[in-house]
Amino acid sequence: MKKGRFTLRQKRAATGLLFILPWLIGFLVYYVRSLILTVQFSLSKVEILQTGGYQTTYTGLSNYRFALLEHAKFNQILVNSLRDILIDIPFIIFFSLFMAILLNSKFKGRSLVRVIFFLPILMGSGAVLRSLELATRNIIGGASAMIEELSAANQINISFLLYVLEDLGLPTTLIDYITGLVSRIFEIVRASSVQIIIFIAALQSIPNSMYECAKIEGATGYETFWKITFPMVSPLILTNVVYTIVDFFVNSEVVDLAYEVAFTNYNYGLSAAMSTISTVVVCLILAIVSALITKKTFYYN
Protein backbone atom coordinates (compact mmCIF):
# COMPACT_ATOMS: atom_id res chain seq x y z
CA MET A 1 0.00 0.00 0.00
CA LYS A 2 2.81 2.36 0.86
CA LYS A 3 4.22 4.25 -2.05
CA GLY A 4 7.71 5.41 -1.29
CA ARG A 5 7.45 9.16 -1.06
CA PHE A 6 5.19 9.74 1.92
CA THR A 7 5.56 8.38 5.39
CA LEU A 8 2.58 6.85 7.12
CA ARG A 9 2.30 9.88 9.34
CA GLN A 10 2.14 12.24 6.40
CA LYS A 11 -0.50 10.07 4.81
CA ARG A 12 -2.62 10.15 7.93
CA ALA A 13 -2.20 13.88 8.14
CA ALA A 14 -3.40 14.19 4.56
CA THR A 15 -6.44 12.03 5.31
CA GLY A 16 -7.19 14.13 8.36
CA LEU A 17 -7.04 17.28 6.30
CA LEU A 18 -9.32 15.62 3.78
CA PHE A 19 -11.84 14.98 6.55
CA ILE A 20 -11.91 18.60 7.64
CA LEU A 21 -11.66 19.96 4.10
CA PRO A 22 -15.36 20.88 3.68
CA TRP A 23 -15.28 22.90 6.85
CA LEU A 24 -11.97 24.50 5.95
CA ILE A 25 -13.29 25.72 2.61
CA GLY A 26 -16.46 27.02 4.23
CA PHE A 27 -14.48 28.73 6.94
CA LEU A 28 -12.21 30.48 4.48
CA VAL A 29 -14.93 31.47 2.04
CA TYR A 30 -17.72 32.39 4.43
CA TYR A 31 -15.94 33.46 7.58
CA VAL A 32 -12.44 34.75 6.87
CA ARG A 33 -13.40 36.47 3.65
CA SER A 34 -16.56 37.92 5.17
CA LEU A 35 -14.75 39.19 8.23
CA ILE A 36 -12.21 40.99 6.11
CA LEU A 37 -14.97 42.42 3.93
CA THR A 38 -16.96 43.55 6.96
CA VAL A 39 -13.99 45.45 8.30
CA GLN A 40 -13.46 46.94 4.86
CA PHE A 41 -17.12 47.96 4.63
CA SER A 42 -16.99 49.53 8.04
CA LEU A 43 -14.05 51.68 6.99
CA SER A 44 -15.65 52.94 3.83
CA LYS A 45 -18.72 54.37 2.23
CA VAL A 46 -20.48 51.58 0.39
CA GLU A 47 -22.55 52.40 -2.66
CA ILE A 48 -24.85 49.79 -4.09
CA LEU A 49 -24.83 49.69 -7.84
CA GLN A 50 -27.74 49.08 -10.17
CA THR A 51 -26.38 45.67 -11.09
CA GLY A 52 -26.53 44.56 -7.47
CA GLY A 53 -22.82 44.94 -6.92
CA TYR A 54 -21.20 47.54 -4.72
CA GLN A 55 -18.43 50.07 -4.73
CA THR A 56 -16.44 51.14 -1.72
CA THR A 57 -14.65 54.40 -1.10
CA TYR A 58 -12.33 54.57 1.86
CA THR A 59 -13.50 57.04 4.49
CA GLY A 60 -11.46 56.07 7.51
CA LEU A 61 -13.14 55.87 10.87
CA SER A 62 -16.11 58.10 10.08
CA ASN A 63 -18.61 55.21 10.27
CA TYR A 64 -17.41 54.30 13.73
CA ARG A 65 -17.51 57.93 14.79
CA PHE A 66 -21.05 58.26 13.52
CA ALA A 67 -22.23 55.05 15.19
CA LEU A 68 -20.72 55.91 18.55
CA LEU A 69 -21.12 59.67 18.74
CA GLU A 70 -24.00 60.69 16.51
CA HIS A 71 -26.38 57.79 15.97
CA ALA A 72 -29.53 58.24 18.01
CA LYS A 73 -30.01 54.75 19.38
CA PHE A 74 -26.90 52.65 18.91
CA ASN A 75 -25.05 53.67 22.06
CA GLN A 76 -28.05 53.24 24.25
CA ILE A 77 -29.01 49.85 22.84
CA LEU A 78 -25.48 48.53 23.11
CA VAL A 79 -25.07 49.67 26.71
CA ASN A 80 -28.48 48.36 27.67
CA SER A 81 -27.85 44.92 26.20
CA LEU A 82 -24.47 44.73 27.89
CA ARG A 83 -25.99 45.70 31.21
CA ASP A 84 -28.75 43.14 30.80
CA ILE A 85 -26.23 40.40 30.01
CA LEU A 86 -24.04 41.19 32.97
CA ILE A 87 -27.04 41.27 35.30
CA ASP A 88 -28.56 38.08 33.96
CA ILE A 89 -25.51 35.85 33.70
CA PRO A 90 -24.89 35.12 37.37
CA PHE A 91 -28.55 34.52 37.92
CA ILE A 92 -28.95 32.29 34.86
CA ILE A 93 -25.96 30.22 35.90
CA PHE A 94 -27.11 29.79 39.48
CA PHE A 95 -30.66 29.16 38.46
CA SER A 96 -29.75 26.55 35.87
CA LEU A 97 -27.36 24.78 38.23
CA PHE A 98 -30.03 24.75 40.91
CA MET A 99 -32.68 23.43 38.53
CA ALA A 100 -30.26 20.85 37.14
CA ILE A 101 -29.62 19.49 40.62
CA LEU A 102 -33.33 19.44 41.28
CA LEU A 103 -34.13 17.73 37.99
CA ASN A 104 -31.30 15.28 38.38
CA SER A 105 -32.72 13.83 41.59
CA LYS A 106 -35.22 11.07 41.19
CA PHE A 107 -38.89 11.85 41.74
CA LYS A 108 -42.22 10.97 40.24
CA GLY A 109 -42.95 12.71 36.98
CA ARG A 110 -39.37 13.74 36.46
CA SER A 111 -39.42 13.08 32.74
CA LEU A 112 -42.50 15.26 32.36
CA VAL A 113 -40.87 18.12 34.27
CA ARG A 114 -37.76 17.76 32.14
CA VAL A 115 -39.83 17.99 28.99
CA ILE A 116 -41.43 21.17 30.30
CA PHE A 117 -38.08 22.71 31.09
CA PHE A 118 -36.69 21.98 27.65
CA LEU A 119 -39.78 23.39 25.94
CA PRO A 120 -38.37 26.92 25.58
CA ILE A 121 -35.72 25.59 23.19
CA LEU A 122 -38.54 24.70 20.82
CA MET A 123 -40.09 28.14 20.96
CA GLY A 124 -37.22 30.30 19.87
CA SER A 125 -38.39 31.79 16.60
CA GLY A 126 -39.26 35.43 16.04
CA ALA A 127 -43.02 35.36 15.66
CA VAL A 128 -43.47 32.79 18.40
CA LEU A 129 -41.27 34.80 20.74
CA ARG A 130 -43.15 38.00 20.07
CA SER A 131 -46.47 36.36 20.78
CA LEU A 132 -45.05 34.69 23.84
CA GLU A 133 -44.06 38.10 25.11
CA LEU A 134 -47.55 39.33 24.44
CA ALA A 135 -49.04 36.37 26.24
CA THR A 136 -46.64 36.89 29.13
CA ARG A 137 -47.73 40.47 29.34
CA ASN A 138 -51.31 39.26 29.45
CA ILE A 139 -50.48 37.19 32.49
CA ILE A 140 -48.27 39.73 34.21
CA GLY A 141 -50.66 42.46 33.17
CA GLY A 142 -53.40 40.59 34.96
CA ALA A 143 -51.28 40.45 38.09
CA SER A 144 -50.25 44.08 38.02
CA ALA A 145 -53.79 45.22 37.30
CA MET A 146 -54.83 43.24 40.35
CA ILE A 147 -52.13 44.90 42.40
CA GLU A 148 -53.27 48.31 41.28
CA GLU A 149 -56.82 47.58 42.27
CA LEU A 150 -55.75 46.26 45.63
CA SER A 151 -53.40 49.12 46.29
CA ALA A 152 -56.16 51.63 45.74
CA ALA A 153 -58.31 49.84 48.26
CA ASN A 154 -55.74 48.82 50.85
CA GLN A 155 -53.16 51.56 50.54
CA ILE A 156 -50.52 48.98 49.76
CA ASN A 157 -48.36 48.99 46.74
CA ILE A 158 -45.10 47.52 45.61
CA SER A 159 -43.14 50.73 45.72
CA PHE A 160 -44.10 51.14 49.37
CA LEU A 161 -42.65 47.70 50.03
CA LEU A 162 -39.49 48.71 48.23
CA TYR A 163 -39.19 51.80 50.42
CA VAL A 164 -39.47 49.59 53.45
CA LEU A 165 -36.71 47.35 52.15
CA GLU A 166 -34.56 50.36 51.48
CA ASP A 167 -35.15 51.73 54.94
CA LEU A 168 -34.08 48.40 56.37
CA GLY A 169 -30.61 49.25 55.12
CA LEU A 170 -30.42 47.05 52.04
CA PRO A 171 -28.29 48.71 49.39
CA THR A 172 -30.31 50.24 46.56
CA THR A 173 -28.32 48.48 43.87
CA LEU A 174 -29.21 45.13 45.37
CA ILE A 175 -32.90 46.03 45.46
CA ASP A 176 -32.72 47.22 41.88
CA TYR A 177 -30.99 44.01 40.88
CA ILE A 178 -33.60 41.84 42.54
CA THR A 179 -36.60 43.74 41.27
CA GLY A 180 -35.06 43.75 37.80
CA LEU A 181 -34.63 40.00 37.93
CA VAL A 182 -38.15 39.41 39.19
CA SER A 183 -39.64 41.47 36.42
CA ARG A 184 -37.65 39.53 33.84
CA ILE A 185 -38.13 36.10 35.40
CA PHE A 186 -39.98 34.82 32.34
CA GLU A 187 -37.16 35.67 30.00
CA ILE A 188 -34.53 34.32 32.35
CA VAL A 189 -36.25 30.99 32.84
CA ARG A 190 -36.76 30.72 29.11
CA ALA A 191 -33.12 31.55 28.45
CA SER A 192 -31.70 28.87 30.70
CA SER A 193 -32.95 25.61 29.23
CA VAL A 194 -29.85 24.65 27.26
CA GLN A 195 -27.75 25.53 30.29
CA ILE A 196 -29.87 23.21 32.43
CA ILE A 197 -29.29 20.39 29.95
CA ILE A 198 -25.55 20.95 30.02
CA PHE A 199 -25.47 20.98 33.81
CA ILE A 200 -27.59 17.83 34.02
CA ALA A 201 -25.15 16.10 31.72
CA ALA A 202 -22.29 17.31 33.91
CA LEU A 203 -23.98 16.08 37.06
CA GLN A 204 -24.51 12.66 35.54
CA SER A 205 -20.84 12.37 34.73
CA ILE A 206 -19.80 12.67 38.38
CA PRO A 207 -18.91 9.17 39.60
CA ASN A 208 -21.30 7.95 42.26
CA SER A 209 -18.45 6.51 44.28
CA MET A 210 -17.41 10.01 45.27
CA TYR A 211 -20.73 10.63 46.98
CA GLU A 212 -20.64 7.25 48.67
CA CYS A 213 -17.18 7.96 49.93
CA ALA A 214 -18.21 11.37 51.25
CA LYS A 215 -21.21 9.82 52.97
CA ILE A 216 -19.06 7.26 54.71
CA GLU A 217 -16.69 9.98 55.84
CA GLY A 218 -19.65 11.79 57.34
CA ALA A 219 -19.99 14.79 55.06
CA THR A 220 -23.22 16.75 55.23
CA GLY A 221 -25.26 17.61 52.15
CA TYR A 222 -23.92 21.15 52.25
CA GLU A 223 -20.32 19.98 52.33
CA THR A 224 -20.94 17.44 49.58
CA PHE A 225 -22.25 20.18 47.34
CA TRP A 226 -19.36 22.56 47.83
CA LYS A 227 -16.60 19.95 47.92
CA ILE A 228 -17.81 17.55 45.23
CA THR A 229 -20.68 18.73 43.08
CA PHE A 230 -19.58 22.30 42.55
CA PRO A 231 -15.92 21.63 41.70
CA MET A 232 -16.93 18.80 39.38
CA VAL A 233 -19.35 20.91 37.36
CA SER A 234 -17.22 24.03 37.46
CA PRO A 235 -15.61 23.47 34.02
CA LEU A 236 -19.10 23.58 32.57
CA ILE A 237 -19.80 26.94 34.14
CA LEU A 238 -17.48 28.50 31.62
CA THR A 239 -19.22 26.69 28.78
CA ASN A 240 -22.56 27.91 30.04
CA VAL A 241 -21.43 31.50 30.48
CA VAL A 242 -20.07 31.55 26.95
CA TYR A 243 -23.23 29.97 25.60
CA THR A 244 -25.39 32.45 27.50
CA ILE A 245 -23.52 35.46 26.15
CA VAL A 246 -23.49 34.18 22.58
CA ASP A 247 -27.13 33.19 22.66
CA PHE A 248 -28.10 36.52 24.13
CA PHE A 249 -26.42 38.40 21.33
CA VAL A 250 -28.05 36.33 18.61
CA ASN A 251 -31.43 37.75 19.58
CA SER A 252 -30.35 41.12 20.88
CA GLU A 253 -31.56 44.46 19.61
CA VAL A 254 -28.08 45.33 18.36
CA VAL A 255 -28.47 42.71 15.65
CA ASP A 256 -31.88 44.05 14.73
CA LEU A 257 -30.52 47.56 14.51
CA ALA A 258 -27.59 46.52 12.32
CA TYR A 259 -29.99 44.61 10.10
CA GLU A 260 -32.36 47.54 9.84
CA VAL A 261 -29.58 49.99 9.01
CA ALA A 262 -28.27 47.67 6.31
CA PHE A 263 -31.47 46.59 4.62
CA THR A 264 -33.91 49.45 5.15
CA ASN A 265 -31.54 52.40 5.07
CA TYR A 266 -29.02 50.70 2.78
CA ASN A 267 -26.15 52.08 4.81
CA TYR A 268 -23.83 49.09 4.62
CA GLY A 269 -20.85 50.95 6.01
CA LEU A 270 -22.62 52.04 9.17
CA SER A 271 -24.18 48.63 9.69
CA ALA A 272 -20.80 46.95 9.30
CA ALA A 273 -19.31 49.39 11.80
CA MET A 274 -22.07 48.59 14.30
CA SER A 275 -21.57 44.85 13.85
CA THR A 276 -17.84 45.21 14.28
CA ILE A 277 -18.15 47.32 17.42
CA SER A 278 -20.62 44.97 19.06
CA THR A 279 -18.60 41.90 18.09
CA VAL A 280 -15.42 43.39 19.49
CA VAL A 281 -17.22 44.25 22.70
CA VAL A 282 -18.68 40.75 22.99
CA CYS A 283 -15.31 39.16 22.34
CA LEU A 284 -13.73 41.39 24.97
CA ILE A 285 -16.36 40.39 27.51
CA LEU A 286 -15.91 36.73 26.62
CA ALA A 287 -12.16 37.01 27.01
CA ILE A 288 -12.38 38.77 30.37
CA VAL A 289 -15.06 36.47 31.74
CA SER A 290 -13.33 33.30 30.65
CA ALA A 291 -10.00 34.50 32.03
CA LEU A 292 -11.70 35.18 35.36
CA ILE A 293 -13.53 31.87 35.45
CA THR A 294 -10.65 29.71 34.27
CA LYS A 295 -8.61 30.85 37.23
CA LYS A 296 -11.20 29.53 39.64
CA THR A 297 -12.05 26.38 37.74
CA PHE A 298 -11.12 22.98 39.01
CA TYR A 299 -10.12 20.43 36.38
CA TYR A 300 -10.53 16.86 37.47
CA ASN A 301 -8.34 15.31 34.80
Binding site: R33, L35, F41, V250, S275, V282
Partner: peptide, 14 residues
Protein backbone atom coordinates in the same frame (compact mmCIF):
# COMPACT_ATOMS: atom_id res chain seq x y z
CA UNK B 1 -18.68 32.32 19.45
CA UNK B 2 -18.76 34.88 16.66
CA UNK B 3 -22.18 36.50 16.31
CA UNK B 4 -23.53 35.77 12.85
CA UNK B 5 -24.49 39.36 12.13
CA UNK B 6 -20.86 40.36 11.75
CA UNK B 7 -20.61 38.37 8.54
CA UNK B 8 -24.12 38.99 7.24
CA UNK B 9 -23.44 41.75 4.71
CA UNK B 10 -20.57 40.09 2.84
CA UNK B 11 -22.49 36.81 2.81
CA UNK B 12 -25.56 38.57 1.49
CA UNK B 13 -23.49 40.14 -1.27
CA UNK B 14 -21.72 36.86 -1.92
Amino acid sequence: VLPAHVIMLPIYQH
